[in-house]
Design a protein around this nucleic acid. Structure first.
Ligand SMILES: [Zn+2]
Ligand SMILES: [Zn+2]
Ligand SMILES: [Zn+2]
Ligand SMILES: [Zn+2]
Lengths: 148, 148
DNA sequence: CCTTAATTGAGAAACTTTCTCAATTATAAA
DNA sequence: TTTATAATTGAGAAAGTTTCTCAATTAAGG
């Protein structure tokens, strides 16, 4: 709630406009919730936090909004080996995530180690590679430091 | 159906035994279905194909079996940017997949380009990286060659 | 063979996601 | 400013997915 709207949310209005989409309070609120969080959030996490800003927000709107924001690259879906459908803010359209498996903290890193590797792999496999999905799991410095 | 059981399925019996799990016809049939397929398969794909071998197989058994096989590394879950929960055979426990987005064909490649990169990234982010998830999307040689 | 604990099938229950539609609202044109 | 319009929303119903329960079955070891 602290600083709303912030620069990122003003940018978002531009992106929405470019795509011919409306800048609704619901969309900005959901984006704000994800932007403010250092952890990945489930659908229900997002609904609850969005309702703190806009109490009447409906669940269907959350689903629709997350699809819209993910499609235009303002947020990312976060996948886990045994189930997915959580979401996180994405600071960069080519952002990969590191997830702390202890406290759920999430960090995105923009640079990508794949550019070279791709061509090589393309040749060997015969696949024309268009896209990739990378996610790292581990422990953040706080959690790795703690004995618990 | 062609060659059942094949070498891979005999190996699977060993792995199940090591873990104290029973080698049931259902588990071997599901593994066979995934092993035989060149494409990733949804839960319902797997149920249908398993029923061709064991007609009474129940849906709950498919869910339970996929969890077991994935936990012991004989198969992998395949994730997509906008939804997941499909499955594929995994020839290697550190196997990453390339998925053809036109025909759903899937190929796993065992070698991993990350070993070096990890340490570097660990230092910069402060995360202790334990695990990673990588998947590539593109077009297989057949699909890339065809105009359609 | 027996025994025993693990596994299964079936359907119920719980949970998640999508759909429908009337009411509302952001936007741009007048 | 108003006004017109198409996009978006909330609510609840519907559809779809996953998990649970439990009696019956069965794999595996003695
Ligand atoms: Zn942490
Ligand atoms: Zn990348
Ligand atoms: Zn293909
Ligand atoms: Zn790897």
């Amino acid at each position: 709630m602290a600083h709303f709207p912030c620069a990122k949310e003003i940018d978002a209005k531009e992106v929405l406009k470019e795509k011919g989409l409306k800048s609704t309070p619901q969309r900005l609120a959901v984006l704000h919730v994800l932007h403010e969080s250092t952890k990945y959030l489930s659908i229900n996490n997002i609904l609850d936090k969005t309702k703190e800003i806009l109490p009447n927000t409906g669940l269907a709107t959350i689903y629709r909004t997350l699809d819209v924001l993910a499609d235009i690259g303002l947020i990312s879906r976060v996948h886990f080996e045994d189930g997915c459908h959580t979401y996180a803010y994405s600071s960069d359209s080519h952002g990969h995530h590191i997830v702390c498996t202890k406290c759920n903290k999430i960090m995105d890193f923009a640079e990508c180690p794949f550019e070279d590797y791709m061509e090589n792999l393309s040749k060997r496999t015969g696949f024309k590679i268009n896209n990739h999905f990378l996610q790292l799991f581990g422990e953040c410095n706080e959690c790795a430091g703690n004995a618990n």
